[in-house]
Design a protein around this nucleic acid. Structure first.
Lengths: 233, 233
DNA sequence: GCGCAATCCTAACGAATTGTAACATGGGCG
DNA sequence: CGCCCATGTTACAATTCGTTAGGATTGCGC
């Protein structure tokens, strides 16, 4: 498996930012969601290894979500909540959470508790790390692309992020905004150019004809779209 | 599984009594010990499913015991301690504890946390000192690497630390920060360079091609990842 | 089609990060 | 003390990747 993916579900932007930053530093991939519905939609595509769930969500009963997650996903579930009563904790744990952290929390402890959960062998939740598309095979665990003729092209971490984003949502428009969020883009205004360059480099590695890209299409004024028949394994 | 066995290690008789009673009521078998030596003697006979360990033991460093337990026993380890600092908790969890409960505790929460641990499939953690990966065999007890063709390469203690870290978490990103923590790196600024050098030397011994390392990959700005199919024995 | 502004592409540069050879240090041992 | 080995340190080379800048492309009004 590649680097573990931690999903963050909290309605407060600051908390999301704090967690996301800390966890990235600690070597995890992260995906943040402000609402349960967003989060559930994303689950279909990329199954996280650990879910950090705040109980005080605006659009859903947090405990019910935890219960469903515990039953249906193989991810470890850690509740992060301001509700500090023993009864809350007991209920959360009984409903299937693996840990319960009380706000305010110390980021270092969150990291330690996530690591403790990841030491356990996973029940299911096999994170996909290899994808095939149009003659290429992308090995995200090895940062390597393999062509049909056996030719190998390695890609960097930054390029891999873009490629993964495309492969997880093929044939769908990906707005620059969306891309920026996913790629940890620090909302820099000139991050736009950085993104262009990443795409440009990726295109080169995929052997795209600049005049007529077959796989990564630019949608002027909107974003990009990846045209390829993707299958994960 | 039969009724789970919970081992209680605490030097205060009242705590032992309280835990023992609560847990029995909750449907567990219990075994209480006041000292680490007693506890260790008992381990040989009946291996518990969960160990509740107090850190403030009179006859042993509790953390060292936790670490040994984590490596050698398959039991879930829950620290129950009066030491409430974040640093204590982080250290305990990093050394292999699965959970950390602060005194004074509520018995109901202890039960809930034990149940959460028992839901996890048991790890059959054995003390490991030999690992096989991609044609190599690493003998940590002899500081020796054996290649498929019988060629032998010895490695130093420092190199062994890095190698073990990799082999214990294969195919996962290991951040420089994480590596520094694990390798006792005292947050030295130029420890970064020392780490690089360790990795570099290890790569050389493994016969890696510097331009295209197959086993130890660098993730720019993030850390390292070990790509090998590891099996311990 | 033409002109123009908005948008996008990419070569080139440079700051930050990482690799590694060479040197320095220090402990163990004869 | 002198040698050897492990390991940290220094210095510089190599790599990654964001930024800049200028050119190319697109959409739109005419």
């Amino acid at each position: 498996m590649t680097t573990p993916l931690v999903a963050i579900l909290d309605d407060e932007p600051q908390i999301r930012a704090l967690l996301s930053e800390t966890l990235t530093e600690a070597g995890f991939r992260t995906a943040s969601y402000a609402r349960a519905t967003e989060f559930e939609a994303a689950l279909a595509r990329a199954t996280p290894d650990v879910c950090l769930v705040d109980l005080g969500l605006p659009d859903r009963d947090g405990l019910a979500l935890v219960h469903r997650l515990a039953l249906e996903s193989g991810a470890a579930i850690i509740i992060i909540s301001g509700r500090a009563q023993v009864q809350d904790r007991v209920t959360g744990l009984e409903l299937g959470a693996d840990d319960y952290i009380i706000k305010p929390f110390d980021p270092a402890e969150v990291v330690a508790r996530i690591r403790a959960r990841l030491r356990q062998p996973k029940t299911t939740g096999q994170a996909h790390d290899t994808a095939r598309f149009n003659g290429w095979t992308a090995h995200f665990d090895r940062y390597l692309l393999t062509a049909e003729d056996g030719r190998e092209v390695s890609f960097s971490h930054a390029e891999g992020e873009v490629l993964r984003l495309f492969l997880e949502a093929p044939k769908r428009l990906i707005s620059r905004q969306q891309m920026q969020e996913t790629l940890g883009g620090a909302a820099g205004e000139s991050f736009d150019r950085a993104m262009d360059v990443r795409i440009s480099r990726l295109r080169t590695k995929l052997g795209e004809d600049p005049k007529n890209p077959r796989l990564i299409k630019t949608i002027y004024g909107a974003g990009y779209i990846f045209l390829g028949d993707v299958s994960w394994s």
